[in-house]
């Protein structure tokens, strides 16, 4: 009985591999990227953004091996598409000041409310989960950056 189920699961898993969604495109050259255009952003903040945010919120996604396996790939595609649509740091400099301030407010809000990074992502990418001090650091930078827009 157990063997039969295992075989069925295996067959379904193999069959699923024939249905691969296309993963959102990785674009390396992003002239409007936040980090490339703002070298004054401190290194520790840059590291947090790249490590905990950029996989879903930029065009420079690092796809792990399992993102090529169905049905995980479906979830990955969905999260990245949604993430880029909501906020894409690769397009940062195409936003005007007001849009930037709105995005910063959003960033601070989701970090404070611990909505981001999403849990399913940090379960797999444990190094992407943010400690309290990292959250503080990111919020502090975001707040100062936003102020600097209106100096």
């Amino acid at each position: 009985m157990g063997k039969k189920i295992a075989i069925i699961v295996f067959v379904v898993f193999i069959a699923l591999q024939f249905f691969q969604p296309s993963l959102p495109e990785v674009i390396v050259d992003n002239p409007n990227d936040l980090l490339t255009n703002n070298p004054e952003i401190p290194g520790d903040v840059t590291a947090i953004l790249r490590n905990s945010c950029y996989d879903c919120h930029s065009n420079t996604t690092n796809y792990p091996w399992y993102s090529y396996l169905s049905p995980v790939s479906l979830l990955v595609v969905h999260d990245i598409e949604e993430g880029r649509e909501e906020l894409n740091f690769s397009n940062w400099e195409s936003f005007n000041k007001i849009e930037k301030a709105g995005a910063i407010d959003d960033i601070i809000g989701v970090i404070e409310a611990r909505e981001m990074p999403i849990q399913i992502y940090t379960v797999i990418h444990q190094d992407a989960s943010l400690s309290d001090s990292e959250r503080e650091l990111l919020i502090g930078w975001a707040d100062e950056y936003s102020d600097s827009l209106f100096d």
Partner: peptide, 12 residues
């Protein structure tokens, strides 16, 4: 709210 926050909230 200071200006940056106010503008951020309104934008959002």
């Amino acid at each position: 709210l200071k200006t940056s926050k106010l503008v951020g909230k309104l934008s959002k």
